[in-house]
Nucleic acid binder design. Sequence first.
DNA 1: CTGCCTGCAAACTCTTTGCACGAAT
DNA 2: ATTCGTGCAAAGAGTTTGCAGGCAG
Lengths: 153, 153
Amino acid sequence: MSIPTARERFRKFLAQKGLRVTSQRLAIFDAAFGRKEHFTAEQLLDYARSIDDSVSRATVYRTLPIMTRSALLREIDIGSGEKFYMPNLEQNTQIAQVVCLDCDRIFEISAPFMEWYGSTVSSKLGLAPVSQRLQVSARCNALRDTGTCPRRA
Amino acid sequence: MSIPTARERFRKFLAQKGLRVTSQRLAIFDAAFGRKEHFTAEQLLDYARSIDDSVSRATVYRTLPIMTRSALLREIDIGSGEKFYMPNLEQNTQIAQVVCLDCDRIFEISAPFMEWYGSTVSSKLGLAPVSQRLQVSARCNALRDTGTCPRRA
DNA sequence: CTGCCTGCAAACTCTTTGCACGAAT
DNA sequence: ATTCGTGCAAAGAGTTTGCAGGCAG
């Protein structure tokens, strides 16, 4: 159970910033941390409403930036119109996204060398890296060869 | 002048795909290739209208995918709501984007190592990389130290 | 009590689309 | 002559915001 710890981090973050701990914010938080796959804002609204049906779309959209700023959630933009979110269980890690064009799934893999890439690339411009994203779009070998994606089945 | 060559590539591409060469498409093309900085769809509309004021927003949005598919234009999504475009002068190159959070400018730098990285990361998942983006958000050292960004001034 | 938070619905931004006219081949 | 391309305006998707009432501190 990493939920109690993370929820505690959330309460602490709220208190620290002078933000109020409301039942809606906690419901949204629990909904997010009960997920193991990526989710959209709209999906999060559904999940949160199944915990507390008073949660509104507006509050979800107002709470998401709070959670991403506190590094509880990771925001992933694969350029598809809507953003995806994911509980940030292991912190301080450089993560790359691989998006499968065949099944639309997002895989995240640890990418420790990205840090070096970011500084290398930024320092040439007199800039200091703040964050970085490596995103790979790819196709499924198994689907091409056998007609079926093992992950999809 | 790389414009005649590129425009020729554009005509060829259109012909090859059975698409018609219209004055609007050429105006949009010229507008795009007259730019040296990144631009948005809306800006491209303005530029194109100054060449041919019959160009409509719809046609710009319908022409952009044609130009990106033909690799004449590069599309850059920094997750800010709107997409940016850039004439693709040097082809076949892996390019990373560095976005300065202080001046909002987008710098593109060649990043040949990305290719290797994409395949390494994809192959672990049984995927074959199609494209990849490395995007670094950074802050300006000079602005922090001297209060002024040399690029802005 | 004070003022931050909330739900609702309208507004906003960027992009896409249906339609009837017009132009390229 | 066909058929594709166009402008216009409306629709769409995702997200943000103004407002009046509600609940945390």
